[in-house]
Simulated scan of single mutants.
Amino acid sequence: MRLLNDVRRLDRRLTRQAASWESAWARRALPAVESAAEGTKLWWGMAGLMAATAGRSGRKAAAAGVLSMLTAQLLANAVGKQISDRRRPPEQLIPHGDVEDRPDTSSLPSGHTAAAVGFAAAVTASSPAWGVAAAVPAVMVALERVHSGAHYPSDVAVGTTIGLASACLINRAPRLLLRGLLP
Rank of each mutant, 00 (worst) to 15 (best):
L30F: 05
L30M: 06
V33F: 04
V33E: 00
E34I: 03
S35Y: 03
A36F: 14
T40G: 00
T40D: 14
K41N: 12
L42V: 03
G45N: 10
A47D: 03
A47L: 07
L49N: 01
L49I: 10
A51K: 05
T53I: 12
K60S: 12
A62I: 06
A62N: 11
A63G: 14
G65C: 10
G65D: 07
V66S: 11
M69A: 15
T71Q: 09
A72Q: 05
L75E: 02
L75V: 14
N77S: 13
N77Q: 13
A78Y: 00
G80C: 03
K81P: 05
Q82A: 15
Q82W: 03
I83F: 10
S84L: 05
D85S: 13
R86M: 11
R86D: 09
P89Y: 12
P89N: 04
E91H: 09
I94F: 07
I94W: 06
G97Q: 10
V99E: 11
V99S: 15
R102I: 14
P103W: 13
D104Q: 13
L108D: 02
L108I: 06
P109V: 02
S110P: 00
G111P: 00
G111C: 06
H112P: 12
A114W: 01
A115P: 12
A115F: 03
A121I: 06
A121V: 10
A122K: 10
A122Q: 03
A129K: 12
A129C: 08
A134H: 09
A138F: 08
M140T: 09
V141W: 03
L143S: 09
R145N: 10
V146R: 12
G149V: 03
A150E: 14
D155T: 08
V156T: 02
V156C: 04
A157Q: 07
V158L: 14
V158F: 00
G159W: 01
G159H: 05
T160E: 05
L164D: 04
L164V: 11
A165P: 00
A167L: 03
A167Q: 07
A167D: 03
